[in-house]
Amino acid sequence: MASATSDGTTRRDFLYIASGAMGAVGVGLAAWPFIDQMNPSAAVLAMSSTEVDLTPVQEGQQITIMWRSKPVFVRKRTKKEIEEAKAVNVADLPDGVARNANLPDSAPATDANRVIKPDWLVLIGICTHLGCIPLFNQGEFGGYLCPCHGSQYDTAGRIRKGPAPENLFIPPYNFMNDTRIKIG
């Protein structure tokens, strides 16, 4: 028969609790592969960073690279575009935060905080309003115009007018050398 310990539980109960606990642990451990298989696979992760050769891009030109299934604009800015961007007062901007993955979240949206090298603008080409792809060299600010609902961005990709709430995002990237960047 089951033996009683001083606090009233029996050895039998301890066994049952142990069985139940082991069963729960087993099910929990077994559940993990079913959940983790939905996370990005090694094949997807291998595409998580992209290197870009900058030599073909002339001043005033822009190329679009796919990075993690998103379009990234890599633009060689003209002197005029750089000066215009620098001249803007950050306090006047609808979104005063840099939105730069390479900097802390609170960094202000100065032109210097939107680039690493001033003549190269690298940003994710997805409008922060509802996700359309903006067009360059249109709109009042010499930068980007989103054709869907009319958001207008300047030559540093910052929102100036229109429904978009935030500046175009800057992805994590770095210069491997003067002519090559690695995004992600």
């Binding site: 028969m1 089951a2 050895r11 039998r12 066994l15 049952y16 142990a18 069985s19 082991m22 069963g23 087993g26 451990l29």
Partner: peptide, 18 residues
Amino acid sequence: FLIAFAGVLFLSYRKLWA
């Protein structure tokens, strides 16, 4: 894990059916 679990379940089974 399974062998340990089987052991615990076996003991439970015997105790229960005693």
